[in-house]
Structures are given as C-alpha cells and as structure tokens.
Write a protein that binds this DNA or RNA. Sequence first.
DNA 1: AACTAAGTTTCAAATAGTGGAACCTGTGGG
DNA 2: CCCACAGGTTCCACTATTTGAAACTTAGTT
Lengths: 287, 287
Amino acid sequence: MSTVLKLTPQKVGRPKGGKDVAAQTQDGTVGKALALLDEVAAYGRPVRFAELLSDSDLPKATLYRLLQTLVSQRMLSLDPDTGFYTMGSRLIRLAHAAWQTATLAPVARPHLDQLSSQLQQTVHLAQLDHGQVLYIDKRNAARPIAMFSDAGKIGPAYCTGVGKAILAFVPADVLDAALKQQSWFRHTEHTHTSAESLRADLKDIRATGISFDREEHEPQIICVAVPILDDLGRPLGAISVTSSTLRHSLDDLAGFAPALKETAEAIARDASAYTIPGASPSGITGA
Amino acid sequence: MSTVLKLTPQKVGRPKGGKDVAAQTQDGTVGKALALLDEVAAYGRPVRFAELLSDSDLPKATLYRLLQTLVSQRMLSLDPDTGFYTMGSRLIRLAHAAWQTATLAPVARPHLDQLSSQLQQTVHLAQLDHGQVLYIDKRNAARPIAMFSDAGKIGPAYCTGVGKAILAFVPADVLDAALKQQSWFRHTEHTHTSAESLRADLKDIRATGISFDREEHEPQIICVAVPILDDLGRPLGAISVTSSTLRHSLDDLAGFAPALKETAEAIARDASAYTIPGASPSGITGA
DNA sequence: AACTAAGTTTCAAATAGTGGAACCTGTGGG
DNA sequence: CCCACAGGTTCCACTATTTGAAACTTAGTT
C-alpha cells in the first residue's frame, strides 16, 4: 500500500469553546461536506465511521448526517456490509469534466504525444494550484498512457522542475503567496530549504527559460522543465522531461530543452486559440 | 473544439410551480451545490452566471451564493476578468484519491499493461456506475486507433462490450434497475433497442463468459469483453479489447478471449487480496 | 445476563439558507 | 451627455435546515 499521507489536509480550525474566533470552517454545510470529503480522501483507504468521528471534531450526529448526504450524492460510497466509506464514483465523472475543460490537458495532449515519442522520454504536464504542483498529464515513452494515476497527483513546487519553471514566471504577489505555502522539507541534500535560495534559482530560470531539478526532490531523479507562457507572459503550466542520473547527465537533459520550448510554445498557441480572447485559458492558476 | 456534448446529463427534475412533488433536488444545500456542479460540468466549457441562471431554476441570489461557495471551495473556478465559471482544481485532486482507493484501477494496472503489450491491442477497464459504464482506465498499444476514450468517461451499458459483460453477471434486481436506466438509443443498425433483445444477448454472455460489441455503439468499432468476477461471482468490472472491422473480424477478437479471461481472473485475485475480507472491493457498483 | 463499542434516531434551539427587491456597475444608444 | 438596460452583487426579514446532547438500538464481549 502506498505511503499513507496523513497530513491533515485542511487544518479544520477548531476552537471548541473558543467563541467565534474568525473564518474557520467556512462556507456552511457545503464547506463542511467538502472538508469531510478531503478527510476521507486523506486516508487513502476505506474508513470507518468511528475513525472519522475521532479525527473530525464534528459531533456524532452531525457527522453521521453529513456522511449520509455525501453517500446519497455518490460523492462517497458506503459498503453496507462492512460500514467502510470510500470515495464515490461521481467524483471521477466530475473530474473528467474538470480535466477536459479547466486544464491544459486536452489542448496539450497531441503535443505531449509528439514530444514524448520524438525524445523517447517521459514527459509531464503540470499546473500550479495553491502553491503546489498539480500533475495534469503524463506521457511515458516506453509504457504509454496513464490518467488519474499520475494526473491529479500533487507535488511540491519548490523542488520540482515544473514547479520552479512556473514559479519563475508568476507575478510577484502570487510568488510571495506561493513561497509561504512551501514546506521547505529537505528531501535530498540538493533541496532548496529557503525562499532566498529558491529565489536565486528562479532568477536563473527566468533568464534562461529553463528549469532543472538537480535531484532536489528524489535522489537520482533529475528533470528539465520549461514553462508554458501565454501571450502576456503569464505561466499557464509547465512541461518537463524526467530521467535519472543513471541514464542522463544534466547536460544531456539540457539538450532536450529546445524541443521542450518548441512544444511549450505550440501548446500556448493552441491554448489561446481555444479560448475566448481575454479569458484566461485555464481555471487552474496560482492564488 | 471537440463536439460539445450538451445532453442534459442529469435531468434535473423541474416542477416549477408544482409544489413539493417528492424527492427532487434532495439533500439540502449540499445536494444543490453538487447538482450545480453537474450543471457546470455538463456545459463542457466555461459558463457565464446568466447562462446558469436561466438554465437553473434557483433564484438569482441563491445561485449567486452557491456559486460563491463553490468557488471559494475551489470546486469551481471563476475567471475574475471575464466572469466565466469552470470546473475547479480540487475536483482533480479528489478524483485522484477516488481513482486510487475506490476503483479497480490501481490493482488492475499492471495486468492491463501486461495484456496490452502481449496482445498489442487497446485495452479498457470499466465498472458499472448507476446503469452506465464508467471507464476507469485504458491502455493503448502501439498505434492509437482513432477513437476517443479516457478514464472518467462514461458510456452506455446496453451497447458496449464491457457494459454487457457486467450486466450479464449482475444480480437480478440490479439488472432490472439498470435496464430501466438505458436510453435504448439506436446508435447503429446493430444496437439493441429493447430490454428483451439485450436479455437474450446477456444469456449467451452468461453462458460463454464472453461479451461482444458487434458495432453496436459505433459503426466499424467492435470489441470483446469479459467480466471481472469476485469469489462470489459478482461482477467487479470488466475488461475489453477494442478494435475496428478494418483490422479484425469478430473471430479474430474471440481469439483474444482466453488472454482476457486470464487477466480478469488475475485482477480479481489481486483485488480480493487487497481488500479486507468481506468488504466489497470496490466502492463503485450498480445500484 | 450485564456490559461495551459502534452506529442510528430524536427533537427543541439556533443557525444558515432563501429569495424578492434594491442596488451597483459598465456598455450602448439616442 | 444622460438614460436604459443587461449582467452582477448585496440587503435583509422570513423560514427551512442544520445542529448536537442525549436517548436508543444493535452487535459483540466477558
């Protein structure tokens, strides 16, 4: 079973007797329901009512009713025999719509195919979402196709090629906000562990238009990435080629940069063509 | 732009002055919010407030507040410049969790890889969801044939190989319910257009364990499918090999059946191993 | 049978959602 | 230049919905 990432997905504020402190849970019932959905998602496995009850601070009856509602709406599903809750099918349908209409994926897809088979390398497409990298699509040269497996996955922005490629071109206010949201966890000895260190890197990236992951996230794993910039120079996302030190040097990867840039431009061009002029082409961006 | 499929995906019941007929919108605010989400998803493109207002029967202010909530929750995203709503990024993250924990995909993945490269054909994995086929994964061998399909996509159950493979092994009550939900639209001259006709076909499928799509959904497109059955004989999903009449005959496809069956059994075996004994392995099933 | 953990239902109190109407824009006429 | 108007946004009194302590069922123990 994959490492269960139980990291309190949304810090559901909780001053029990603490009066009305401020905007905590927010957004009424809908907000609570969605927070609960995140909660269930965070388990990464079927969950019992009691588990949710102890982790959440909702009173029993409230939690119960909320779960009922979510199940009835098929956002969750409840195994009647065992009482385990899992994520519901409606999410997958909705996500399909989201993926199709609010991401670069449909536009980028043919270009990624082309690039992947041209370079014979693994290619990623990612966008920035709340200071984190959201992987939208992936093309694996050898073993083709993957969907939500990799699409939908999130990763850190401060220590991935795509993350840095996007951050380098994001407006100052968005960058500031994003930097505050990074964990600065030292994944490897090459990881940037402070905003200053990263900013220096971003400056280079801005100059060259090329971002490298020098084993900053995982040992042995390296990557080149370039941003996808719209006609106003705003980053819509980024694409990357990932490899390992066993197969390529950073210089080798640098050799892929021209092809990446070309592809990124092609995607940007298509994206603007698909969009109502003036509208930002993607729903998913910074903030 | 890809064909906009505007087919009122959920028949949002609508008795305007009709008093309180019965369980319509249901589930309070959460239900309404989710219905709205579906509404937006159905457009398949960015939507304006006014469009939603005229299609929905919510009063202006209510709709407005709901949208605000959903945007604030990142289930929708609103382009501040243009006022267009699109699906939000949170859906993609949630769907990833759903896909990972509530579908057969993670378990089936290696087996599909294996099958796809062994047969050098396009392989699909699907599950039944509310009388419809929900495509969970797809593996496309070498050259992609001209066909659109992706994880998260939904399709009819009564005229697809995977749909019929599952229906053939579903308990009587689920089958009855599912049959009522079919549109019986005559996609091609081979499409089953009535429950009787389909039932006869299902009987054969039950006998042989093999389901064929004989150009029933799209002209030229044919497919063999087999169900994935758990140890109690309940269908967890189905896998299929799809091709076109230009490349294969139905007899050719029949030749793939043994490999398909073997793979389906392997998936079922793994699925039961991954699950708490007694729990149904997948959240997504009939009903 | 007595106890306990886990899940379900009740019900008065209170919060949160409703929606008609007024109020802001920015745009396009006249 | 001023008015009309469509597309959005905000108000606010009215109510339906949500809330959660507590009582109540089941299963599973000891």
